[in-house]
Design a protein around this nucleic acid. Structure first.
Length: 219
DNA sequence: ATCTCGATAGTCT
DNA sequence: GACTATCGAGATC
């Protein structure tokens, strides 16, 4: 991480085309500041959900559950699914248009001990061992166990429905930072089918950077 | 490495 | 009543 000052991404960033945003937000940092402590991670895998897409929660119109998607860009849309998991999305497109980017995976950078606690990984992952901290394979294994999936990262960052609809463009409970201007290398983005959906599977709207190791799944 | 399956509850038809 | 933008364990190869 660093000593250089990090600034939150502004509302205009979230108003670009949603598919483009899903690529450009790769490598940006998610910061969660809760009473328990701060966790920070690098966004490493995303999916785009646009208004004309039957797989998008907003496709059939506004409901109590999905209303945040129709709200201000740069806010959070968090929903509960499978009876036990939460998923975190970044709202895009202008007010009244239901589009968002699902954050599927994160490389944990700061607050790993708090993440481990929230994830309930005490014995499963030997957090202090050399195996998990002193080499790349260990870092990857630990990172994926903590934040390698949409449900996992919500748990690690302490996110549930009470963080639905928060403004991510201001430093606060939950926000997204840009470490420097050169972070986005969009030409190295890999696009694949999205995960866990049964329609529109031909769309290549899941994104990660070439060589990325912190993914919810490989391939 | 890849698979199958159970857990668990909110949402929508 | 069916489905779900998931996860982890256990079986199998």
């Amino acid at each position: 991480m660093s000593n250089q000052r990090m600034f939150p991404l502004g509302c205009e960033f979230y108003l670009q085309d949603t598919v483009e945003l899903a690529k450009r937000i790769l490598n940006c940092l998610l910061i969660s500041e809760s009473p328990e402590g701060t966790t920070i991670g690098r966004i490493s895998e995303t999916e785009a959900y646009t208004a004309n897409d039957p797989a998008c929660h907003a496709f059939r119109g506004k409901t109590a559950r999905n209303q945040a998607m129709f709200g201000t860009p740069g806010h959070s849309y968090i929903y509960f699914t499978y009876g036990m998991h939460h998923c975190f999305n970044v709202v895009s497109a202008s007010e009244g248009v239901g589009e968002a980017v699902l954050v599927r995976s994160i490389e944990p950078l700061l607050g790993l001990e708090l993440m481990r606690k929230r994830r309930g990984l005490s014995k499963e992952i030997d957090f202090k061992s050399d195996n998990c901290q002193n080499n790349e394979a260990g870092r990857q294994k630990l990172g994926v166990a903590l934040c390698g999936g949409p449900g996992k990262l919500c748990q690690a960052f302490g996110l549930d429905l009470s963080q639905n609809g928060l403004d991510l463009t201001q430093q606060g409970r939950l926000w997204i930072g840009c470490p420097n201007e050169e972070m986005q290398n969009v030409e190295h983005v890999i696009a694949t089918p999205r995960i866990g959906i049964s329609v529109e599977t031909e769309r290549l709207e899941r994104f990660y950077l070439k060589g990325e190791r912190f993914l919810s799944r490989n391939k």
